[in-house]
Write a protein that binds this DNA or RNA. Structure first.
Lengths: 191, 191
DNA sequence: ATTATTTTTTGATATACATCAAATCACTTT
DNA sequence: AAAGTGATTTGATGTATATCAAAAAATAAT
């Protein structure tokens, strides 16, 4: 059974019924095909998305034109470029679908209106940021700082056992901050 | 002129006078000597601190017993182990003063009470987390992912021009995720 | 099925940085 | 000032991973 937006929202921090209804009205339900860009550099990130089903990658393009993945969101996760979204300033990264996706989205201005209008929604948003965003980035930071390439790959595999079927080796290598040659050697057990 | 707690709070998101007064009453004003530990691993991080004056380091101790710095807060920054604080679970890292410090602190439970009590304080806390916490970690993540040792050092110097007088080479090297020998060679221009 | 295109693997070499050991420098303390 | 202690620098060597080039395998297009 696919998860619903309402279930996602209520699992973060339960809202009173009439607040929930107001919130749900401000979301749009969207479907996009594989390779579609949710965000391109230079544009402010206008939305906060919730993934119902699918997969996306976040990436930067460096001076040499090489794409470097910084994050994946697979199924039921929140998607946004937080820095660009919270300051409504031009994004530096891209967000691209790597599978056909089903998403729910709320606009920045609608979010601000709801935060001002409902105290309970502000408490909900605090939980969202604390639980989903901060934990994710801090985990990733600790990984980069303490683990070597092989350990980072094994952790990713534990977290997403089916990732090799959904995301190409090159994309995973880029995320792990190693070359695809090195990842290939790790898979072959040569490292 | 030293900054006051009230100025720090109001610069994040202005609060109505009577909310501000309630908030200020829940803070304690503290002074601790150099080397004092604000947090040790295994204990939940009970406080959110605001630095008035001084410097602290955050560090992990790895399996080989080596201390690895993950962060510095110098003057007027917020201090907390966010993961431990927001979930009130045992911390994995230490926070130690590297200068005599003047701090203001609020307890987790007091913060929760104020968040429930004042809608405007919840909006204030959202700004705090968005501006101070998320931006900081994302910057650091990007640094680790895209910059080499020398570039990270130069960026740190730009951000804190006086850091070499306040923090030892070993502590800085640990933060940059390189050995102190490598940092010494970078300083000498040999890299 | 055959060809074209993309993805993954393999090999040889190069580089950034770590590690280990020792020397030098800079403070304290007597 | 001398001795002691911790911080920093230097040198020699080792290792993980990058880079470049090419082969093999998998996937898509004709």
């Amino acid at each position: 059974m696919k998860v619903t937006l309402e279930e996602i929202i209520q699992s973060i921090y339960p809202l009173p019924q009439q607040v929930l209804e107001d919130v749900l009205e401000h979301f749009q339900h969207l479907e996009y095909p594989k390779n579609y860009f949710l965000l391109k550099p230079g544009k402010p990130c206008k939305y906060l998305w919730f993934m119902i089903e699918g997969a996306v990658r976040y990436f930067y393009t460096n001076e040499q034109g090489k794409e470097i993945n910084t994050w994946f969101s697979l199924d039921t996760q929140i998607i946004t470029d937080t820095t660009s979204f919270v300051h409504q300033e031009p994004a530096q990264e891209s967000i691209q679908l790597i599978e056909n996706c089903e998403l729910c989205a709320i606009e920045y201005s609608a979010l601000q209106t709801l935060l001002q209008k409902h105290h309970s929604f502000a408490l909900w948003y605090i939980k969202l940021v604390e639980m989903h965003y901060i934990s994710q980035i801090e985990d990733r930071l600790a990984d980069l700082q303490f683990l070597d390439a092989k350990q980072r790959y094994q952790k990713l595999l534990n977290h997403y056992p089916d990732i090799t079927n959904r995301i190409s080796l090159g994309n995973i290598a880029s995320y792990l901050n190693i070359t695809q040659e090195t990842l290939s050697r790790i898979r072959a057990g040569k490292i």
